[in-house]
């Protein structure tokens, strides 16, 4: 079913997609003329497929549960923020705070993600086929981030237990973030993420792993300058 944001209001379209339920057969939707509008496909909770043809504004696919949402363009700030489950696939670039606070699901970005990608994430998987900007995975608590390009300044600053895998260069590591050894279970995890995001030409051995040194978990006077 085609939904036109030039003809219908954003709230009408979002309401329609938020209330599909489990009984309807119509489960594939296309949104045209997004024109950078905010909050497109926010709060979807049913197992449906939505493709957005064009560029979107802030908080696209925010709070997603179960739905599979593809954006055929670039996205603004906070794509898939607080996602619980499902899949969000951005075919272009993502602006700042992509996948912020996401609890679950899979976010794939074919292009680059700018600053603060995966900030405070709590369990999702994020795959960025390009590079990420500064402060990626800032205070990230759980889940995994796979970066096929480079990472900007202060990667994993004040990180908790999110696993970060980077193929390219890391400009600098943030406070309490260190490089860690890749074990068998991490190789399996990388391979799973590569497979789920349709990346065939890369191998798990090409990635390096970064995570928390766990020195800033509790207050220590010696670490005062790092807080």
């Amino acid at each position: 079913m085609k939904l036109d944001l030039k003809k219908s209001k954003l709230r009408q379209i979002n309401e329609k997609l938020q209330t599909v339920g489990i009984k309807k057969n119509q489960r594939i939707f296309t949104i045209i003329n997004p024109e950078g509008n905010h909050a497109i496909c926010a709060g979807l909770k049913d197992d449906i497929d939505v493709t957005i043809k064009g560029h979107t504004g802030y908080y696209c696919a925010g709070m997603n549960q179960n739905a599979s949402i593809t954006i055929d363009g670039n996205v603004g700030t906070g794509v898939a923020e607080n996602m619980m489950s499902g899949k969000v696939h951005v075919k272009g670039n993502a602006s700042q705070s992509a996948g912020a606070t996401a609890h679950g699901g899979l976010l794939i970005i074919d292009g680059d993600a700018s600053s603060r990608c995966g900030i405070s994430m709590k369990g999702a998987d994020i795959v960025v086929k390009g590079s990420v900007g500064h402060m990626c995975a800032f205070m990230a608590q759980s889940g995994n981030i796979l970066i096929c390009g480079d990472a900007g300044d202060a990667l994993g600053d004040s990180i908790y237990e999110t696993e970060i895998f980077v193929k390219g260069k890391v400009k600098s590591l943030g406070a309490d973030c260190i490089e860690k050894k890749i074990e068998n279970k991490h190789e399996k995890l990388i391979n799973k993420m590569l497979q789920e995001s349709g990346i065939k030409n890369l191998k798990s051995s090409q990635f390096r792993r970064y995570g928390s040194a766990r020195n800033l978990y509790n207050f220590k006077i010696d670490n005062l300058s790092s807080y």
Partner: peptide, 22 residues
């Protein structure tokens, strides 16, 4: 500031769109 400001520009959907780096 936001993409929606330029959604009406000619052929913007095929433009090279990027964020200026800090």
């Amino acid at each position: 500031s936001e993409f929606q400001a330029m959604a009406h520009l000619p052929k913007v959907n095929s433009a090279k769109i990027f964020e200026p780096e800090p």
